[in-house]
């Protein structure tokens, strides 16, 4: 499979990445090189093979339903680029 200019624009939008016109061309060539490498997978017969998501196949452990985390909003918001009165500031969304 290879990636057209339109595909790249669609994927970049999904990924919320803006690419300049020069970047688009170089990126498409590089991504197609990577996809050619990846496509070697298609030669492997994987019929009836279960996908493996976790190498040791451990299952999620449930903890006791107790409060372990305390509210540290102010501490964590100190690294926010724009926060005010405990809120993160973003451009206006609703007019």
């Amino acid at each position: 499979m290879s990636l057209s200019g339109d595909d790249l624009a669609r994927v970049a939008k999904l990924a919320r990445l803006g690419l300049t016109t020069e970047e688009k061309e170089a990126t498409a060539t590089q991504l197609n090189g990577i996809l050619a490498l990846i496509d070697r997978m298609q030669a492997v017969d994987t019929d009836s093979v279960e996908p493996l998501a976790h190498p040791l196949e451990l299952t999620q452990v449930l903890r006791a339903d107790e409060v372990t985390e305390h509210n540290q909003r102010d501490h964590y918001q100190r690294v926010a680029p724009h926060a005010q009165d405990g809120l993160y500031l973003v451009p206006r969304v609703v007019e």
Partner: peptide, 26 residues
């Protein structure tokens, strides 16, 4: 990010991510 987004996007998941996880088991 672009390769990963493409591999996970609608219509490509089985051919890429699922296939890779099957090979991972092998």
């Amino acid at each position: 990010i672009l390769i990963g987004t493409y591999a996970l996007s609608e219509g490509y998941f089985d051919a890429y991510y699922k296939k890779a996880q099957q090979i991972r088991r092998l």
